[in-house]
Design a protein around this nucleic acid. Sequence first.
DNA 1: GTCCAAATGTACAGCGCTGTAAAGAAGTTT
DNA 2: AAACTTCTTTACAGCGCTGTACATTTGGAC
Lengths: 338, 338
Amino acid sequence: MARVRLIDVAELAGVSMKTVSNVVHNYVHVAPALRQKVQAAIDELGYKPNLTARRLATGKTGMIALAIPEIDHPYFSELSRCIAEEASRRGYRVIIEQTLSDTVAEHAVLQDREAGLVDGVIFHPVRMQALELARSQRDTPLVLLGEAAVPVTTDHVMIDNVAAARDGVRHLVALGRQRIVFLGIVADDITVTTTRRLLGYQEALVEAGIPLDPELVLTVPDFTPESCSAAIQAAIASGLTFDAVLCRDDKFAVGALQGLHRAGLDVPREVAVVGWDDTALTSFTRPTLTSIAPDKARLASTALDLLEERMRGHQGSGRHRLVPHSITVRESAPAIPG
Amino acid sequence: MARVRLIDVAELAGVSMKTVSNVVHNYVHVAPALRQKVQAAIDELGYKPNLTARRLATGKTGMIALAIPEIDHPYFSELSRCIAEEASRRGYRVIIEQTLSDTVAEHAVLQDREAGLVDGVIFHPVRMQALELARSQRDTPLVLLGEAAVPVTTDHVMIDNVAAARDGVRHLVALGRQRIVFLGIVADDITVTTTRRLLGYQEALVEAGIPLDPELVLTVPDFTPESCSAAIQAAIASGLTFDAVLCRDDKFAVGALQGLHRAGLDVPREVAVVGWDDTALTSFTRPTLTSIAPDKARLASTALDLLEERMRGHQGSGRHRLVPHSITVRESAPAIPG
DNA sequence: GTCCAAATGTACAGCGCTGTAAAGAAGTTT
DNA sequence: AAACTTCTTTACAGCGCTGTACATTTGGAC
């Protein structure tokens, strides 16, 4: 079954290709009678435009790439959903690239992969540095997510992680907590994200007049909840006392809850727990998880706003947008002191 | 910064376009000296081939579409990851389409979206019926996932849901459980998947000589854990007694665990729980969740095997592949009778 | 009726690449 | 040295669509 082409329709309808094209695109100035005739031919042959050819002719692909570290991490899968929905609302299709936090894959995202395939790229880097990103600037518009790299030359959207961490700590302090654990630093993999959250944590403690205690900043070997659970249990076993945990991530918080439960500590009575990202996980845990909530929908729409402007030709230097965050209060760190 | 084209490189190197193309494609018969000269020109200009143009010329896009109901459902995000990884290993790029279980979106997947955009489609339908799918057959190869629709004309990969449900129930029976709840049927949204799992559940009960009790088959208003939790609690409140729950899905199991906990029942001592899909959720719950585990990696590779054969021109009627499943035993329904 | 602007339709050159056919160069065999 | 091979390289026609420039028709205004 050979594909039906524009010219086939044109011949059947007895008009020029361009007229068929005009009908397909709903161009205003086509006489109703002709339009009808052409439409009939289109229907009869079951014509579907070849998007690849259209692209080559127009130079537009109607697709944007979304490059994220892991598609099955709850935060990224939820963010992907927001971006995919927003993009589809605006008439774009999304290609999702998974970098697995791999340097080579991240470079590939920017280099090979922009080869006319997409009109723009939304990229959440983990490994690449600001300078590398700045250098690899090509003509394909790019918007960065996260705070791993913030080259001044490139548009960028993130939440204020320092402020958000501060808000998390303030919430715990308001609950009367004084010994707040930060969970955690990943050994050999200290990301900028973690650093900024840790910074906000410290600022809020200083602001509250609570002495900093390095012992309270826990290190874990990797990003799994199991490791977090083990780290919490080890800390307890070693005699560390604390009454709250601010987690870098909801998955860390899941681990913290497990560890606390295994150690026989009650959440939130003895230890309050705050997660981060407000993913669906928060309502799956026991108790349900209070979590710092980046406004993912806003993040998606802001990123697309910036990207669309660039795609329309906006030049200028990098714009930086902060997206609001909030704290969604659930059982693990309730509003009323527990 | 205008794009560098093949012809620009050709002019700089003083050769024909085709020779440059041959160098780009590592064609064997190019004299070493020329190859080097061309390569130098490529590097100097920073040439990247335009994939859209290549596509139009070759008719191959190197992309496959993956259409799933929800990208942020744990099962689908994990499956997507498997498929994306396997596809990238084979040199394909993946476009993920989210249908949100919407009939219109599902049709769109097959109709508009195959317009030369991708070489093949992997589609997990929810709403579309076998006949509709069969009818919409175009020339773009298609492989179906799940069991919502199984037209004989189309390639298809799934696990044996009936057998898997049977295995789940057998595991519970081996644990000494006799009153096993099936959670659950979603009101107004009885999918084929649910039906088949329910069927296996019944078969295993009959096989074990346990009387069927319609009361044990619970109905929930939607797919959220919260509803499942409520349904379990309501059942308990109404006096239903049971010692195990076979869940349709890990998210349902999360809800079941919550409901049982709220009702003060111990898992697994009083009630054992088995989830389905073996997603990352299973290790996040308390207790950790025994779950029926479709072999996702195998599912991905089988789907791609079939799709690649079709893309290479295989005709023939629909092939149907069953992928193995197993049961991953964790705390909620341990191996040793608890 | 004439004239002009707006409405309607067409022809055709490209978008950047690859496949094909065929020419030219180099090496081998009679 | 002619006649073959085999190896290299090239020219050019598309892939299917859209933008541009232009031709034609229509409908009033004069």
